[in-house]
Nucleic acid binder design. Sequence first.
DNA 1: CTTCTTGCAAATTATTTGCATACAT
DNA 2: ATGTATGCAAATAATTTGCAAGAAG
Lengths: 132, 132
Amino acid sequence: VTETRSTRQKDAILRAALASADHPTADMIFDSVRGELPKISLGTVYRNLQRLVAEGRLALAPVELEGDSRARFDPGTHPHDHFVCQGCKRIHDVERGKSGVSFRALERAGFRIDSHSVSVYGLCASCAAEER
Amino acid sequence: VTETRSTRQKDAILRAALASADHPTADMIFDSVRGELPKISLGTVYRNLQRLVAEGRLALAPVELEGDSRARFDPGTHPHDHFVCQGCKRIHDVERGKSGVSFRALERAGFRIDSHSVSVYGLCASCAAEER
DNA sequence: CTTCTTGCAAATTATTTGCATACAT
DNA sequence: ATGTATGCAAATAATTTGCAAGAAG
C-alpha cells in the first residue's frame, strides 16, 4: 500500500467523495470539484479515484443500478452492505450486525424489500487446493 | 412480458447461454455461436440477450469481477447467490436455503471465503410512503 | 533537481443504434 | 403481406492512456 503524492486535486477529490451523502460516480465528483478547481480534468479525477481506492481511503460500491453502469465510490471502507432504492435510485449503507444484515431491522425502519443478492468472494475448492 | 419473435439467432444465443457452465459475457456468447451462425453480428447478440432477460429466460448476474466491467448473463432465473473465485475468476452459483446462504456449507465444500457483500433492493422509507 | 502528477486530447472498451434488406408469422 | 429481426457500420458512454508541461518532495 505505497502512498501516492498528495496534490490539491487529489485532496479535493477525496474531500468531495467523503462529503457526498450518496455514492457518487466519477463525473459527479468531477462536477462537485470543478467549483474549487475549474481547470481539473476528468482524467485526473479517474486517476485519483483509482489511487484512493488502492490506498484504502475509498471503496468501490459493489452495486449496479439498472441501466446505469457507472462505478460508484463509497467513503465507507469497513465491511458493510447496501440498500438500493428503486424509487429514488439512492444507495443507502446498511450496517452489519454479528449475524449479518438484519432484514427485520430494515423493514422496521420502513424500507420495503423486494429482493436481495449475496456475492461471496474467495477461492473455490480447486484454486484453494493449488494455494500450497 | 410480451414475447419477441423466435429466430435462429435468438434460439442459438439462448442455447449457448444455457449450455455454458460459466456466466458468459456477450462476446463469449458471440464466439460460441459463430460456429453455428458464422455471419451473426455482435449487435444481434446484444439485442437478443436484452430480449431474453426482459422475457425472463436469462438473468443478469449481479457480480463484478475486478477490472472487468462486462455484463454477465445467468441461465438461472430463480433467486440464488454467487461465489466469485478470485483465482480462476469463475462465478459459481450458490443456492439459498430457508435461512439464506450457508457460509458453513461453502466452507465445508472447500471454498475459502475472504469477503462477501449483500445488496438489498426495494424502496426506501420515503419512496415507500409515496407509493400511496 | 528529480520524479510524480496534471491537463488535454486521442484511444479503448463495452454497448447501443440507424438503416436497408431478409425472415417469421 | 406485414412487421419485426438481422448484419453492418457508425454512434455513444464510460474509462483509460500518451505526452509535454507543471508541481511536489
